[in-house]
Design a protein around this nucleic acid. Sequence first.
DNA 1: AAAAAAT
Length: 782
Amino acid sequence: MSNNHNSSGRTAKNYDPSYAKGGSKGGPKGAGSRAPGHRGHRPEEGGPKKARWNADERAARAGGNDRPAYGNDRPARGNDRPSYGSDRGARSERPSYGDRAPRTDRPAYNNDRGNDRGNDRGERPSYGARSERPSYGADRGARSERPSYGDRPQRGNDRPSYGSDRGARSERPSYNNDRGNDRGARPAYGQGSERPAYGDRPQRGNDRPSYGSDRGARSERPSYNNDRGNDRGARPAYGQGSERPAYGDRPQRGNDRPSYGSDRGARSERPAYDANRNDRGDRPAYGQRPSYNDRPQRPERTERPAYNADRAPRKDFADRADRPRRNFDERPPRRDNFDRPGFQKSDRSDSSFYPKRDFSGTAGKGHFTPQDDVVLERLEAEAIQASDVVGMSFGDLGLGGNIVAALAELGAPSPFPIQAATIPDVLAGKDVLGRGKTGSGKTIAFGAPLVEKLMENGGGKKRAMSRKPRALILAPTRELALQIDRTVQPIARSVGLFTTQIYGGVPQHRQVGALQRGVDIIVGTPGRIEDLINQGRLDLSQVTITVLDEADHMCDLGFLEPVQRILRETADGGQKLLFSATLDKGVAALVKEFLPSPSVHEVAGEDQASSTIDHRVLLIEQRDKTRIIEQLADRDGKTLVFARTRAFAEQLADQLDDAGIPAVSLHGDLNQARRTRNLAQLTSGRVSVLVATDVAARGIHVDDIDLVIQADAPDEYKTYLHRAGRTGRAGKQGTVVTLIPKQRQRRMAELLERAEIEADFVQAFPGDALVSQIAGHAPANA
DNA sequence: AAAAAAT
C-alpha cells in the first residue's frame, strides 16, 4: 500500500490524496509533522475541536507512553490504590492525588472511569477530578456526530471515523484491565474466575451476572454492538449482518476490515472457504504484519447458521477405512511403579519424573530436534498425600486469622495438598520448589505464606512512604501476572499490605507512581521490572522473598537471563520459591545460584491417569484444518484453541467468526487492552471461543473451559500439559483435541508418552460424526 | 515461534 511508503518521500506523502485516509500500518511518526494526517496538525479550517486520529496516528502512538490509552494502565492503579470503598482509610495514608504530578497532564480522568465504573462508583463520593471529565453524555454526543458511514465505500483504513472511534476508545479505559484490581480490592468480587478452581464452589458460568470486561463496557458505553451494528448496516458490503448464511454465500470481507491489509485483499479474491487453499499462504509476511488491534469487534450474532457438516464432506479418501486406530495395547506398558500413589520416596530416588526416552529414531526431517523436548530428570521431591490434608485448616498451617479469612473469601476454605505441603516450609523461611498439577492451587500455596511472612517481619503497620518492596512474584505473561495479583492482592490487603503490578504494554507512570507511594509486593513480568530497575525507579534490594511462577518456563531461553539479573537485584540470601506444574531440572541453574538447600514438594498421585481430561488426536489433512476446527468449535461450552503463531491465531479467530462462531484471539500482536478484553470475554462467557498462542498456555484460569483444541500440535510435552491444563480444572471433565497431519503421528506419540498421556489417534475429516461427537454434540466415547 | 521492554 502506498501509504506505507510515505517515509520515503514527503512530497509524495503530502500530495498523495490517499494520505489523509491513513495507512494500514501507520507510517513513521516523524514523517512530516505538518502533514494533514499528523496528530500535531491543526487544520486551518475550523474542524471539530476534538482531534480525531486516523489509523496512522493510532498506529504511531500505539504503545507509546504518551498516548492517552490510560485504560491500560489502570490495573496498576487499582492495585496500589487499595480500593476506594472500604478503604477510605487507606487513602489517607497516601499522598493526596495532588502530588501525583503525571496525572495533571493526562487527559483528565478518563482513566478513572474504569475504576469508577460499577461498584466503586457509588461508593465514592465526589472524586474531585471527576468534574473535569467530560460527561459520558458528551462522549456519546461526539459519537453520534460522526458522519454516517453510508457514504463511505468501505471501512478500511481510510475511515477516519474508526480512528476517532478508536481514539475515543483509547482515551477511555479499556475496562478489562482493571477489573482484576478492582476485584482484588473488592472481596465481593474477588472470587472470580482467576482463582485456581475450588471444586466445591458453585459454578460461575455464563449465568452469573457478567462481570468481566463487558460489564463496565456495557453499562457505560453506548454498547459496541449498536455502534457496530450501525457501522455495518451502513455498509452495503455487509448487508447480511448477523444472519450470514453458509460460507459460500458469505459476502466478501476484504475491504471492511481496516487492519488486515493485504491479507484481506487476497482473501476477498478467492472463494471463501475453498477447502483446498492453503490456510497460511496468504498470510502477510511477518515484518509487515498488520496491527490487529484496530480491527473492529464483530457484532454479536444472535442467530448463526448451524454448522452444516455435509457442506463439503470429504469422505472419499481411499485409505481411510484402512487406517486403523492406533493400537495402544501393543505399546509397552508405560506405567512404572514410580510416581504412583502410595509410592515411597526411597523407591524412586533414582528415577525420573518422566521416563527418559531414546529419541534416536526421531531425528527426522525438518527442524525438529529431539533434544528440544528431552525430559529432564525430575527433582527429588517429598510427596504429600491428599489424605494427609483431610481436616486440616489454613490456620493449622500457620497462617493468621486475617489471611485465613481472606482465603475463605476467595473460596478456599481449607488447604489443597500442594498448599498444605509448601506453606509451612515457606513460613519457616526455607527455599521451596513446588510442583502441583495445573489448577491445583499453586498461587495460594506461595501467595498466602508470602503475605504472612511479610507481615511477621515487621510489615503491615509502619508504612513509610518510602518503603521498598519486600516481595516479588515473577510470571511469564502479563495475563498471568494480573491473575496472580487478583489472588494475592486481597490476601495482602487483609493484613494491610499493598501489591502492585509491574508489566509491560502499558504506560509506566502509574506503576512508577505506585512504587513511589510504597508497595510491599510486586507482581509482574521480567521485561518491565528490569526496565524500571535500569531506570532507577525500582529498587529490589529489600526484596527478601521472590517467587517464580511457571519456574521451569522462566528458565527457558530468553527468560532465564533476565530472571537471573532480576534475582541478583534482590536481597542476598533472600528466600526463593519456585513453582510449576512441570517443575524439572531445567531450573537447576537457578537452584544452584539462588536456592542453596531447597525443600521440594509435590502431590502424590497427580498423574494423567487420575486426570479428568480426555485426550484425542485427530489425523487430518492440512487443508481440512480450518473446517474441522469450525466443526469442533461450533458448540456451547467454552472452547480454547491453541495456534502456534500469532498470525494463525488471528486468522483462525477471523475464520471462526466468519463461519458464525463468535471468537476472539489472544496473542502478542494485540495491544494489552485488547488482550485483556478478549480474555475477559471468554471469562465472562460473552464469547465462547478464544484462539490463542501459547501466551495462554500456562497458568491462565478460566472457569469451565471444557474443550481445548490444539490447531497446531505443541513441540514440547510440557507445553501439551500446560495447554491441556486449561481444561479439566477442579475435577471437571475436559477434552483436549490435537490436530496433526499424518506425518506427525510418530512425533506426537512420543510427545504424549513423555507426558504420560494416553490418547486415541483417529483419522478425521470435516463432517465426520466423530468430530461432532468430540465437540460434545453427541455423547462422547461411543 | 512465542513470550517478555520500548523504541
